[in-house]
Design a protein around this nucleic acid. Structure first.
Length: 332
DNA sequence: TCCATTTGACCGAG
DNA sequence: CTCGGTCAAATGGA
């Protein structure tokens, strides 16, 4: 237990360090990214050890626990980014041209099928499944995947998935069983030149054609792919693209951010409470029920499952600027 | 001519 | 055998 506490304290310390050095680090995104990663790792390890202390999980629930852990991990990263970036609300506010309600999850095992992806990001696929059992198909490579949802842009061509700051080349399209819309496959434009292995899959949701589900596979190893000044090499290697986009939507630290975004976004940095972010993950440990937002969850029954959601609530409802770590970690 | 997209074929996991 | 993911030839636009 002492080791766990030590890990937690370490995470808190790293967080405070980061906060106190934020101004000086803000021009060093690669160091910033690595600091975030350290924080996430510290809390993630503590979380893992805590779970090892509790009653052994029945085999049939293990997958759910893993997903819960990894969902926590990713959400912690989101939280870290939210905390670091007081301007992030633009991305998630309804002023975003993509109406970007972003669900961020991460596959526990890199599998890509609807069944193996627990939680909610695939609820559409499952919902549209006409009762047929879809088998889990795990790739041997076990590539880490990150899935987000982004609403169709309200401007321009609504068939085009939201720009995530990277340049992609489409290499395939496939009709997916049980889905009305085909799934598109993209790889990094600079694959041949830089050997960048980043890929993504884009699919419109059956039950919400205005929303794209974007699954990122692997990280960018190229420097040229981004249409923004980010990401630096380290950030590209450690932070999923959807989080990097959070970074890239900051007010121009360096000035070559995509003009389209800034043109189409109103910057109201003094209204941080105007948030429209919904974060979901695989919170349901033993069921396949769709996840719900922190606002609608029955808190009495599942309080134990919502520590991160509580954090999100604290952030979103606190009216804080988002940069005050004490608001999130103070009690600890 | 170059580059991105389309699309049918193929591969491999389950 | 099914079906998701990828390949690569064909096609089209700049």
């Amino acid at each position: 237990m002492e080791e766990i506490l030590s890990l937690i304290f370490h995470g808190c310390k790293l967080t405070r360090d980061l906060e106190s050095n934020l101004q000086s680090l803000i021009n060093n995104p690669s160091l910033l990214a690595s600091s975030c990663e350290d924080i996430v790792m510290a809390f993630s390890r503590a979380s893992d050890r805590l779970k090892a202390l509790v009653t052994p999980v029945p085999p049939e629930l293990e997958g759910g626990v893993q997903e819960w852990q990894t969902a926590n991990h990713t959400q912690a990263m989101v939280m870290a980014m939210l905390a670091l970036d007081p301007f992030q609300s633009q991305l998630f506010s309804d002023k975003n041209p993509f109406d970007a309600k972003v669900w961020t999850t991460r596959d526990a095992d890199g599998s890509s099928s609807a069944k193996s992806r627990g939680g909610g990001e695939l609820q559409a696929a499952e919902g549209s499944d006409t009762g047929k059992n879809q088998r889990s198909r795990k790739r041997k490579d076990g590539v880490e995947k990150h899935t987000i949802r982004a609403a169709v842009p309200r401007i321009g061509n609504m068939e085009i998935p939201p720009d995530d700051g990277f340049t992609w080349r489409k290499y395939g399209q496939k009709e997916i069983l049980g889905s009305r819309f085909p799934r598109s496959y993209y790889r990094c434009t600079h694959k041949s030149f830089y050997g960048c292995i980043a890929r993504k899959q884009v699919q419109r949701l059956d039950d919400d054609p205005n929303t794209f589900e974007v699954t990122y596979c692997s990280h960018h190893s190229c420097l040229m792919s981004s249409t923004t000044s980010f990401p630096p090499p380290v950030a590209a290697a450690t932070i999923p693209p959807e989080l990097l986009e959070v970074e890239t939507t900051q007010p121009p630290l360096s000035t070559n951010l995509p003009l389209r975004r800034w043109d189409s976004m109103e910057l109201e940095t003094d209204t941080p409470t105007d948030l429209n972010l919904e974060i979901s993950g695989s919170f349901n440990m033993a069921t396949t029920e769709a996840p719900v937002t922190s606002q609608s969850q029955d808190r009495d029954a599942k309080d134990v499952e919502w520590p991160v959601a509580d954090l999100a609530d604290a952030i979103f409802n606190s009216g804080s600027s988002g940069s005050d770590m004490d608001a999130f970690f103070g009690p600890i």
